[in-house]
């Protein structure tokens, strides 16, 4: 009787497959790697945008936000687009009929996102360190936690979108939302610097919560509890929505 490979091997194979697919895709690389690094260099090395650094160096203020942007681009935009096209092309259905199954597919996707994020962090942190970034040594654990919480919330949003909209729609929405959240979602710079009511709204958005969490971790060494609650709430709501509404066909 034919048998399945062990579950760990199946999921690892899928994770590696997903990671390679993203890292080999030009547009995906543009969004996940080139864009965050460009934003980092632009915000640190130019003065087109007047930053209120509150006494910090530009690089110390900006790097946490860029890392948050990187999480958003991979867990949300890149994953939403990849999953939407896989869904349209029947890839999700085909893989679901192999021993991988739907749960293995999901696990592989999440691990693939985390693997791409490791590549992003290495690249962004490398450039940031070269530009003079000096993160607090003890803050890395908190930053890791913030990244994982943000990944959970934005992956759930990605799967929700990919599971209910047409692939072309997801392509448009996922990119548009990334731009809107980057500009007005409190991710790159502290939410309180946003104009008027946006400052209060942004901290309730997953983007603002992730940005604040990452800045809290890397600037103060602790993740604000409020951001944790906001991210967990978004993860629960979006995850439940995706589980209920995701259409495989």
């Amino acid at each position: 009787m034919s048998a399945a490979a062990p579950v760990a091997r199946r999921v690892a194979a899928q994770a590696s497959f997903e990671t390679r697919a993203i890292l080999r895709n030009g547009e995906q690389l543009l969004v996940t790697l080139v864009l965050p690094v460009l934003v980092l260099v632009a915000l640190v090395r130019t003065s087109f945008i007047d930053l209120d650094t509150g006494g910090l160096s530009r690089i110390d203020l900006v790097t946490p936000g860029v890392l948050a942007l990187a999480v958003m681009s991979t867990a949300f935009t890149s994953q939403a687009i990849a999953t939407a096209f896989d869904r349209r092309n029947g890839v999700l259905r085909l893989l679901a009929t192999t021993p991988l199954g739907r749960s293995g597919l999901l696990a592989g996707k999440i691990l693939g996102v985390l693997a791409v994020e490791v590549v992003q962090v290495v690249a962004i942190a490398g450039v940031a360190l070269a530009l003079g970034w000096r993160p607090e040594g003890g803050a890395l654990g908190a930053a890791l936690g913030a990244g994982l919480l943000g990944t959970a919330a934005f992956t759930a949003l990605a799967l929700l979108l990919a599971g209910i909209l047409r692939a072309e729609g997801v392509l448009a929405v996922a990119n548009l939302v990334l731009v809107l959240l980057t500009v007005g979602g409190g991710v790159l710079l502290p939410a309180r610097q946003l104009a008027g009511p946006l400052a209060h709204v942004a901290v309730l958005l997953p983007s603002g919560a992730l940005g604040e969490a990452m800045r809290g971790a890397l600037l103060d060494g602790t993740v604000p509890a409020f951001s944790v609650v906001v991210l967990l709430a978004w993860t629960a709501a979006l995850g439940a929505g995706a589980a209920r509404l995701f259409r495989w066909h």
């Binding site: 034919s2 399945a4 490979a5 194979a13 697919a21 029947g90 085909l94 021993p99």
Partner: peptide, 30 residues
């Protein structure tokens, strides 16, 4: 799932990978 093979009408193949790479990937599930 390990005992049933499926070929979908629309193929269901991911488009960005190479032909044999895909086949090796599916074979890793067994």
């Amino acid at each position: 799932r390990p005992r049933v093979g499926v070929m979908l009408q629309d193929g269901g193949l991911p488009t960005g990978v190479r032909a044999l790479e895909l086949l090796r990937h599916v074979s890793a599930m067994y």
